[in-house]
Design a binder for these strands. Sequence first.
DNA 1: CACTTGACCTGTCCGC
DNA 2: TGCGGACAGGTCAAGT
Length: 370
Amino acid sequence: MPELPEVEIIKQGLSKLLPGRIIADVWHNWQKSFPNAPADVARFLVDAKIISVKRRAKVLIIELSSGYSLVVHLKMTGQLVFVPKTSEQKARLRQSYGRQAKSKKQKAEKKFGGGHPTKSLIGKLPDKSTRVIVEFYPPKGARDIRLSTLQGKVEQRTKPYMKYGEGVAQTLTQQSAKSVAGVPGRQPEQQGDTAHGPRLFFNDQRKFGWMRLLPTVEVPQIDFMKKVGPEPLEDNFTVGVFIERLNRRKNSSIKAMLLDQTVLAGVGNIYADESLFAAKIHPATPVFKVSKAKLVMLHNALRQILQQAIDKGGSTDRNYVDVKGKKGSYLNFAQVFRRQGQVCSRCGGVIQKIRVAGRGTHICPRCQKR
DNA sequence: CACTTGACCTGTCCGC
DNA sequence: TGCGGACAGGTCAAGT
């Protein structure tokens, strides 16, 4: 369910946490979640420093010092969760709260997670939805783990990288952290949290998402990037641009056009339904039948709603933890999405769920006439 | 070419 | 309570 606002929030959060960190090690347990050649991983991912975190459409781009980038698409159920190393976490808590920083709430505040809302965002990781783990070297000055120790382990690995479907594939899907003990040279459960540095978890219960390692210069050349439409929140995304792109297929339904990533970037089912409701347009209306005035309203509503969602912390309604431990809440503000059977806040009609462009679609039939 | 359907997956919910 | 099936929706590929 991560759409533009959710991915943007992840980008903002990780931008504060990742740049400057150096990758110590990587695991995966599902080939399609991490479709990269082991040799590339060893050469361009391990020991690379993170330069920046960017977003284009629903895609995250983590730029590395090696000239490569980690390109991430969360698709339906992907999440990224950053878990600081224990000692680092404690140090920050001491900084923020003094010596008595012990409550669960305060601990949770130092994690950051975003994406599809499940308990994996706040629970113990890895769990059964974990597909990839990126581990960083601990920051300088960390007391209870020495950089040299971890480096030694990396050098000693008999398998520097798991071949697809081997070893970790079974072990990682087990419940406890013991699973990671299946990796040679690593016994986190026995050694406790201090046995690893800060980690970035890529969780994805439905395995639709992926993390792809690509030369940074090739990222704009991949098919998706070449054909993806403009960013709706950019200043140059004017009403004129919007209408021109919609007019490419005048017979298509307006909702199908909003969902089409080549028309504009980043809109998924939630924000398509919400913006069409705001502009009082029936989602099945062909583009050519929507008045200019309504398209202007739609353009305005879309931008406003996307921005509002970012401001509210994303469209999740539970289990969402941002960099300050605040819960995201956009669905609390949704007017139609997943509100079928409830009363329309605008006219008192009853929200319906129908099917448009092959997707579940939520409308107020009184506000949004065909 | 426009549009629809199926595939990729797993967890949840509904009806029997 | 169990079991099968529908459904969730981002994107690509294949089919109509």
